[in-house]
Amino acid sequence: MFYIIGGVAVLSALIMVTNKKPVSAAMSLIVVMFCLAGIYVILDAHLIAALQIIVYAGAIMVLFLFVIMLLNIQEKEGRVAKHKIFFQFTWILATGYVFINMVKLIGAGDLPARMEGNIDGFGTTRVVAEILFTDFLLPFEIASILLLAAIVGAVILAKAKIE
C-alpha cells in the first residue's frame, strides 16, 4: 500500500516539475498532496490527513490556481542554453549519486525502532489537542506569533503604497 501511494506521489511530483503548463503542474501537485494524506492515514494520523486535504489540497491549491489565473501566465518554451546542458547533466549525475548513497546508507542501518507503543487513541483529534495545549504549549504560541509576523510582512511587501 505504501509503495503504491508513495510511487504515485513521486511520479506526480516529477510530472509537476517537468510540466510546462502551470495549471497542469498545479493539478499534479494536488495529486501529490492527496497521496501524502494517504500516507498519513497509513500511519494512523487521521487528523493530520484530514488537515492535509483541507489546508493543502483545498485552500492552498485554490490560491495557487487563482494566482496563476490572475497573472495570466503565458506558456513559454523554455530553452536550455547549449553550454549549460553539460553543466546540468553533471549536476543531475552528482545529485543522483548522492541520493543513491543516501538511500543505501539509510537502508543499511537498522531503524532504531523506538515507537513507544501505541498511545491510546493515537492520531485522534483529542490526543493531538491534549498534547498541543500541554507539552507543546510554548511552540504553539510561538507559531501564532510567527504567523502574525508573516502577515505583517506580507502586507508590507504587497501594499500598493507605503505612506
Binding site: L138, P139, A143, A149, L157
Partner: peptide, 25 residues
C-alpha cells in the same frame, strides 16, 4: 532546548528578516 522551539524561533527571525531586507521597495 527542544528542536521545535529552536526551529520556530529561527523561522520567526528569518521571515522578519526577509521582509526587512526588502523594506525599501
Amino acid at each position: 532546548t527542544d528542536l521545535i522551539v529552536i526551529f520556530l524561533g529561527l523561522e520567526l527571525m528569518s521571515i522578519s528578516l526577509y521582509v526587512l531586507a526588502g523594506y525599501v521597495r
